[in-house]
């Protein structure tokens, strides 16, 4: 069974075609990279895969289940999408503990381990509002991986990270792939895509092209 199957996915918002008849099949246990200009449709594609938007036409299946029909959201999903935050008045651990309590499938020690894994201190008493941009991004990655999801969807995962942070995240993603997770990354940093991804796709004007398919890579 494929991890993600997308058939003729089209999304039109206010007359503007954001995603245009995308068909794509992604295997389990691989890292897929999506690159392209801002507003090319990368984030909207990820939102459709995660069940956050409804397609105008077409179908998305994750692990065989139709998103928006069989399930509202993929059943085992970790993600980071742009412009999403945490509760400012809570510490990093408190934020992740609250989110973990929704599914209730991991322990406090699992949460602490995920926070340590991204180079943060789970006992840090600083509230999220006092975190630097890099720390916020690291915490976002910790929440995406803490429940050991089968599908990890990351929109610009190395944004705001310093060199050490970028290296750390790259290693984490390779470890997650080793665990069997399927990982989708959208990034404008070509090095991220080149170093990590088994397959690469260029997103342009709402369409998807395999890298090297003749459409100019940037």
């Amino acid at each position: 069974m494929m991890a993600v199957e997308i058939y003729h996915l089209t999304k039109i918002i206010r007359g503007r075609t954001i995603l245009n008849d995308i068909t794509l099949e992604l295997e389990r246990g691989k890292i897929y990279g999506f690159f392209g200009r801002n507003a090319s449709g990368k984030t909207m594609l990820f939102r459709a895969i995660c069940g956050l938007i409804k397609p105008t036409r077409g179908e998305v299946r994750v692990f065989g289940k139709r998103i928006g029909v069989d399930v509202s959201f993929p059943e085992s999903l970790g993600l980071i999408i742009e412009n999403v935050g945490f509760w400012e008045q809570w510490t990093g651990f408190q934020n992740l503990k609250f989110l973990a309590s929704i599914k209730n499938i991991i322990t406090d020690e699992d949460i602490r381990a995920a926070i340590r894994r991204v180079g943060l201190d789970p006992d840090d008493k600083r509230i999220y509002g006092k975190y630097s941009l890099g720390m916020k991004q690291r915490l976002g990655i910790a929440q995406a991986i803490m429940e050991k999801p089968q599908l990890i969807v990351l929109d610009e995962p190395t944004n705001s990270l310093d060199e050490e942070g970028v290296g750390l995240v790259r290693n984490i993603l390779l470890e997650e792939k080793g665990r069997g997770a399927t990982i989708l990354i959208a990034s404008h940093i070509k090095e991220d895509i080149d170093l990590l991804c088994d397959e690469k796709f260029k997103v342009e004007a709402g369409r998807i092209y395999p890298a090297g398919s003749g459409v100019k890579d940037e």
Partner: peptide, 15 residues
């Protein structure tokens, strides 16, 4: 506003 993506996708469904 704060964390829709993280909260929502951890629920079985929207309802």
């Amino acid at each position: 506003r704060i964390s829709s993506v993280y909260v929502f996708t951890r629920k079985d469904n929207r309802v």
